[in-house]
Design a protein around this nucleic acid. Structure first.
Lengths: 347, 347
DNA sequence: AGTGCTTATGAAACCGGTTTCGGCGCCTTC
DNA sequence: GAAGGCGCCGAAACCGGTTTCATAAGCACT
């Protein structure tokens, strides 16, 4: 049952090399090998090079479990997603998540830390009971995110991507205000004067921010604010329905502000159904520039959130936090840039 | 620098409980606590319940690092992807990968094992030097997959999703033959008699299988085989170009068999450009039923590969393997089902 | 030569589990 | 009633690292 990992190079029957083996070969003690590797204590350069030689001669790799028992570190961070993975909730969120996951995993791996993926699960307590985690990344957590209490109870450092509700160690700014302004200003520039805001029903910061900016601007220009809330779980189809109904009550509608891509494509469906030309009669814009926005016809104007950079910042901040180094509670993120496409561009 | 994880419930100043604490409270020895937890040795039911009581009273959670040092287990498996994550390679692959990742993570988590995500990296050796892994999942590895030698060298049990090239411990069958037949038969039923096969240039089993089945059927019905190879890295745009050129040489073309969704949508672009009606004049079918296939107009006929189930099977097989239990070298996967949509359906 | 300080190192304790080994009590069996 | 077997358990070794503590060597200074 015990099967210690066998390691090259060398005889196939050999167990994996340990510090002791390295120490013996280098003619030093185990403690010195440890110090040579980790640089916690000064080691004579000459000694160090003997140790290094022994390490590569034996193909030594430290046993992380043994190390972890003293350091308390597991060298793993988790990416938590409270978004439903079901197809119903839409592969669009999966795209969003995956962009972040890939970039975060890369940044972590560069520092020899592994990223573990935690999809939404009913009982995080039970499932993660035996999973050692040094820290957690949370993607746009909802106000009542089920993972937050769990992480707080375990005392796990947590960095959120996008604003959270104060329960995290740090957050990377996704610049919700700037993003909302970018899209709203663009709609206005393109001549839209009567457009609803489509958002989800869950309590997420960016919905709140979009709504606030939308209402503020609407008041400024004397537009009747129209905030349509759609249960995200129901996705595109629900958005199409709500939009279709809304079109009846506001025939003069000339734009749509739908930060969630699935809601935007839902609106597009309704507009096609109602024979409203996009962008000639109605301009449509969304936030997340995923596959969905790009495969719509016409393609949707969206925002480049630089998710890869955001994810990288978040992972790095988290690792700093884990190392015990101070990190700003709000890490500035890259500025969003609008990508104007056919759905809002005249001609 | 040392900051042992503090744990509820109890005084916030308290260190996390250990087996020793549990043993003391239950009035037994540490060894007995261990055996009560892991069930390796018989423990009197009465004793066990005392231990259980002590565990929950103290909120004890075993330290996985300490456990791992003896068991040699890290309780993590990795999902390796050799697919490029860049936008160029297409978010479609991300969707494919994410579906698998989510399902595999879930299946692993149910068994208290974490799934770590390994995006393509230049030097797996270096980056994963200190990342402990019990096993690996490989998604449709190419023949010269860079991860394979690494995994073999480390002696890490590996399960591939879809056929590999014999270098893995086990593989979950994605039923390439059945999938190819499903699509080809469907094209024929829909009256197509002159259709090319669009595949990628990399050495992947499913390209080989599709090509073999395609050629076999073409020979049967007397169709001139037309195999178009497109570098996957270049994606949709390249497919559109190749397809446009091909259309000139075969004006009578009445179908397209493009297993990769990005190649299928590329072909759709070319067809639109050339003013060929789909499905009236040309039927188009693809394999992966992702966002891409569904957001095409008309929607693409595709195959439900039951990726979630495949991923689950793969994760479970891998965990069995890790436990040392025997596993079939080819685990049967769920049968693919065709999803007929507008791109190939008459009327 | 003796004292004090710094630097480099080895020996041993330690981390928190698991596993081995052997002992004890109790029940059969001859 | 002694021998043997079995079920249950405690003591101690063990896993492979890190960290503490003591010491030896080297050097400067008095």
């Amino acid at each position: 049952m015990k099967q210690p990992e066998r390691d090259p190079p060398g005889k196939p029957g050999a167990k994996r090399a340990t510090v002791i083996d390295v120490a013996r070969l280098a003619g030093v003690s185990a403690g010195t090998v440890s110090n040579a590797i980790n640089g916690k204590r000064r080691v004579d350069p000459e000694t160090r090079s003997r140790v290094d030689a022994a390490i590569s001669a034996l193909g030594y790799r430290p046993n992380m479990a043994a190390r972890g028992i003293r350091t308390g570190r597991a060298n793993t961070i988790a990416l938590f997603s409270s978004m439903a993975t079901g197809v119903a909730a839409g592969p669009s969120r999966l795209g969003f998540l995956m962009e972040i996951a890939a970039a975060a995993a890369l940044a972590a791996l560069e520092r020899n830390v592994a990223l573990v993926l935690v999809p939404p699960i009913p009982e995080p307590e039970a499932a993660l009971r035996t999973v050692p985690l040094d820290g957690a990344l949370l993607v746009e957590p909802a106000r009542n995110d089920p993972f937050l209490p769990f992480l707080a109870a375990r005392g796990i450092p947590t960095v959120s991507i996008g604003a959270a509700y104060g329960m995290v160690s740090a957050q990377v700014d996704l610049n919700y205000e700037a993003t909302a302004d970018l899209l709203i200003d663009h709609l206005l520039e393109m001549g839209a004067r009567d457009f609803p805001l489509l958002i989800g029903t869950s309590a997420r910061r960016y919905f709140e921010v979009f709504e606030a900016r939308y209402r503020a601007r609407a008041a400024q220009i004397g537009m009747v604010p129209q905030v349509l809330r759609i249960e995200e779980r129901l996705g595109e189809a629900a958005a199409a329905q709500v939009m279709a109904r809304h079109l009846l009550s506001r025939p003069g509608l000339d734009g749509v502000l739908a930060p969630v891509d699935a809601l935007a494509t839902g609106a597009m469906m309704a507009l096609r159904e109602a024979r409203r030309a996009v962008p000639a009669e109605v301009r449509v814009v969304t936030r997340y520039d995923g596959l969905r926005a790009r495969s719509e016809a016409p393609q949707l104007t969206a925002v480049d959130l630089h998710l890869d950079m955001v994810a990288r910042h978040a992972a790095i901040a988290l690792l700093e936090l884990i190392e015990g180094r101070p990190v700003a509670s709000i890490v500035p993120g890259p500025l969003p840039q609008i990508i104007v496409r056919g759905s809002s561009r005249p001609g």
